[in-house]
Design a protein around this nucleic acid. Structure first.
Lengths: 336, 336
DNA sequence: TTGTACGCGTTATCAG
DNA sequence: CTGATAACGCGTACAA
């Protein structure tokens, strides 16, 4: 390993002080244009690179943002991450990423690792069995900003970026009602998570308003298998539903496949609405009606607000929750 | 911001030297069990956390691994990343991730950022228009290991993790031949990238061996739109193909949709084979025959070899390329 | 088994 | 506009 060039080396060569070199390299206003040119040229020439470790040590910050997601291999999360990376990169931060694999235990470990790595801020989407935010206490204590997105829990110290899941569930149900459906079913995920609990709540609210029963609710993990299981369940019902709202597209798609095999016509026998506008929504037949919600944008906004928080703005307690718009995309699975 | 506890604080409290504290905290053998217990207890009590910056500065390494992928929002890449995160996390490293968005320009910028962040090693899948590895020169010079995966370019200083794409293309074509298909078409991606160039090569090789023409080849970006375009192209052919191999499942799925709308029966008129075993493969109708290749495993192996390289092993020039197995998954899109 | 003392490379403060 | 100097917190020869 050859030696690294330091600002001392440059200073010595140019007969200047390390301080001047340091300032010139950061484009400090108090350095004459001439010396700056001299120094940057020499730095380039000598193959200098700033030592992040030393700089971090001195400045007490890392210019790094941490992200914890439930799963890396999810279509939705990957668009969110893409959005975050874009913004973070433009803002000259680094992104360090880890996954909780839907376990609080691992989430806690990740939080600790992030804390020990001295990230400047944290972006989190909670695991499916996280009950509270006590493991973020160290961050709160040090006033390191934590921003929750999508799967959140209310907390005075956290900004949350979400969509109105109650409303989205409501919209889905109303859409089915408008298609003349009377007997509605919903397939949902862990009720500990706002996203699923709220979608169900909105669904129920809409049914109540229309005087319909809301007794058909299946709670699972919204996997492919859960979709198949839901279809099997439906097949055995004496009175199967004619409207189906599934809180995830992939699960909805696999369910549609199984329902068709079982002889149900989609949408005639059962109209289906999914959630996310996942790529599969445009591939399954019939194309899936769904609630679109902007993953990329959610990532960008989360990253953006974290960064702006980091660069000055005092704790913006004003906007503690940012709600993005969602949109019902009507396709063939719910309309003739 | 309250003050951080340092090893000096602990030392002072316990009337020991900072050196002893430092050693005890790292479980150095030369420290008595008693003192160790004392020190770790005090550290816990006082809320001490090791200062990574100082430690990095001193040790000249970051315990951080960089990853550059073409796109974060890709089903395949996200499984790879999931695999990497798993291993890296277990090995007590951090993962910093960025995306090139298929542009060399951005890839270069990312490489530079990674270099300046002093990561201990780099994992890369190349952008679609990367011609050479000259931008990795700084890493090679400093002997910082660079491992390429999936989209690679041969280089003496790099280990590559790949599948045998030639063979995979060959397998796909032979499968179509065995289904009795005579007129074959292939939809591929940027020929600068090994993965696509090699799949095409294998495809051609198989056709040649069976005395079939290989003049029907479309090169695009393998997007949804490219799938639709391919279908439109096929529709206008006086003599459409009866066998179709598409180098990506998502593109294949959208193509199948359009072909069916245009009146082609799948697989009777056209048998289709995709690539990746993407989730959509199991949703499209008929289910898509495809080449499965282990993204998660590829990520795990890439991370694993990087880490083992970092912890001792001298430049393993022995295995410069690691080839993983792929598998043809036969489904309804190619067999009656 | 423990302590002393120095350096890792920056940047901030203060002085000129 | 530039320079001297002092931290930042840790790890490690070397000494005891």
């Amino acid at each position: 390993m050859e030696k690294e060039v330091t600002i001392y080396d440059i200073a010595r060569l140019l007969k200047l002080s390390p301080a001047t070199v340091s300032r010139a390299l950061k484009d400090h206003p108090a350095i004459s244009a001439g010396t700056k040119r001299l120094i940057t040229a020499a730095a380039e020439e000598m193959g200098y690179r700033s030592n992040t470790f030393a700089s971090n040590l001195r400045r007490q910050r890392s210019n790094t943002i941490g992200v914890i997601v439930p799963r890396l291999d999810s279509a939705f999360m990957s668009t969110v991450l893409a959005g975050m990376e874009k913004i973070v990169n433009e803002g000259n931060y680094n992104l360090i990423i880890s996954q909780s694999l839907e376990s609080v235990r691992k989430e806690k470990a990740n939080v600790k690792t992030m804390f020990d790595s001295r990230i400047d801020g944290l972006l989190v989407s909670l695991s499916s069995d996280t009950d509270d935010l006590s493991h973020f206490q160290p961050f709160f204590q040090k006033e390191i900003p934590v921003i929750l997105f999508d799967r959140v829990l209310p907390h005075p110290n956290c900004t949350s970026i979400v969509i109105d899941n109650v409303r989205a569930g409501y919209d889905a149900a109303v859409h089915l009602v408008r298609q003349g459906r009377k007997r509605m079913m919903h397939v949902s995920g862990s009720q500990k998570r706002n996203v699923y609990e709220e979608r169900l709540r909105g669904f129920r609210q809409a049914l109540a308003e229309h005087g319909l029963a809301d007794d058909l609710v299946l709670v699972g993990n919204l996997t492919r298998q859960d979709g198949l299981d839901a279809a099997r369940y439906i097949r055995q019902l004496p009175q199967p539903p004619d409207g189906l709202f599934v809180a995830s597209d992939f699960c909805a798609a696999s369910c549609i496949g199984a329902l068709k095999e079982a002889g149900f016509a989609i949408p005639n026998d059962i109209a289906v609405v999914g959630f996310n506008d996942d790529p599969v929504a445009q591939v399954v037949e019939p194309r899936l009606t769904t609630i679109r919600y902007p993953g990329q944008e959610m990532g960008e906004i989360a990253a953006q607000s974290l960064i702006s928080h980091l660069s000055g703005q005092p704790p913006v307690t004003a906007a503690n929750t940012i709600v993005l718009n969602h949109e019902l995309i009507v396709r063939g699975s719910s309309t003739p």
